[in-house]
């Protein structure tokens, strides 16, 4: 059986999505502040891991890792995770992914909400 990650197009799909997704995040005043002190090149490679994970691909991240990565982002709350999921959906739509798959990706991102928000 093929995984969602493979159905979406694997690493190639991640590369295409990362630029669009990260551009949306940086351009959105509600979340861009969280990225002010990060190096763009480093961030783009991290976004690849993020999307690989959200697509249900090979995942090196544990809950603890996600907790550590986000624990210093003060003020992070549910609304920000919603925004991430919103931009993720819009990115995939632009790339022509069908709604059923977008719903699955959103569910994966949503499943780590508590880890990202450290609760």
């Amino acid at each position: 059986m093929t995984t969602l990650y493979e159905e979406l197009g694997g690493a190639g799909a991640v590369d295409a999505a990362v630029e669009i997704f990260y551009r949306k995040m940086l351009a959105d005043g509600r979340v861009s502040g969280f990225f002010d002190n990060t190096d763009m090149d480093k961030q783009i490679s991290m976004q690849k891991s993020f999307l690989t994970m959200a697509f249900g691909g090979p995942n090196e991240y544990t809950g603890k890792h996600l907790r550590d990565a986000h624990k210093n982002l003060s003020g992070l709350n549910d609304s920000h995770v919603d925004i991430v999921i919103e931009h993720l959906g819009a990115t995939l739509k632009e790339l022509g992914v069908d709604d059923a798959k977008i719903t699955k990706v959103a569910a994966i991102a949503n499943s780590v909400r508590d880890d990202v928000l450290n609760r």
């Binding site: 630029e19 990260y22 940086l26 190096d39 090149d41």
Partner: peptide, 15 residues
């Protein structure tokens, strides 16, 4: 440099 990079990327230039 970081500001110019970010603005240029947001404007649509590939990283």
């Amino acid at each position: 440099v970081n500001l110019l990079k970010k603005n240029t990327f947001i404007a649509g230039v590939s990283s």
